[in-house]
Amino acid sequence: MTREDRIARTFADFRARRRAALVGYLTAFDPDRETSYARISAALRAGVDVLELGVPFSDPTADGPVVQGAMLRARAAGATLAGVLQLATRLRAEHPQVPIVLFSYANPLLRLGEEVGARLSGAGIDAALVVDLPAEHAAELREPLRAASVGWVGLVAPTTPAQRLPGAAAVATAFVYAVTLRGVTGAALDADRSELSDQLRALRAHTTLPIAAGFGVRTPQQAATLARHADGVVVGSALIEASQRGEDELVATVGSLAAALAREEAGP
């Protein structure tokens, strides 16, 4: 199966079953390599459908305290991009069907230079989500990744004005991530806001790709509400916090989120 196919097929399967996929974010190497490998594997077995694997970065300006803390622990445990890609390779071998999206800031990927496509592709990464490369600059990494059949995740925010939507959506090749909240990751979300459903509906007009929505999703209820408007629901900070309380807590949290999505019909 080619890489973007793995993402496309997963979302198509979920759409056919009229439910949203659970996109789970965890930071690689948090709190250390082997624990994070075990936790991520457990989360995938417990119902995470698409893995967003975070590359620790020294200056995560778009992230809130929970993800910052995870990145700090990971870096203290010796995380490097090479180490993260090795972790991805092992996860790929154990979970051949699960789409793996690499979440990163631009600078670590930029340092790989011309090898970036081959390195990510070789580690079984299906797509990259680079928070500080807006549509204007996306080509810098998107093109070398595309040449290696690694997809690109587009980002839109609640602040994205109508005239930016087409461009922001058009750079995506894998799926579009709709940030549902003003602020950094992990802040509080009111999933019932009508503004949110309007935002997601407007985005549909500009892309045929799947839409994953997230930022601030903590409870099964919030996940279920978002699932009515999106093909995937992204949960990050809540999983990191659960994982800090132990594997059992992480598995239980993933289970309750997955169960909530299974009960709700996904967006159109």
Binding site: P134, E136, A138, A157, R164
Partner: peptide
């Protein structure tokens, strides 16, 4: 990308929320 102001330097490398 299109908007580098100082040769190979400059640009607007911020999250979409800030763009």
């Amino acid at each position: 990308g299109p908007s580098l102001q100082f040769g190979p330097y400059g640009g607007r490398y911020v999250a979409e929320s800030l763009m």
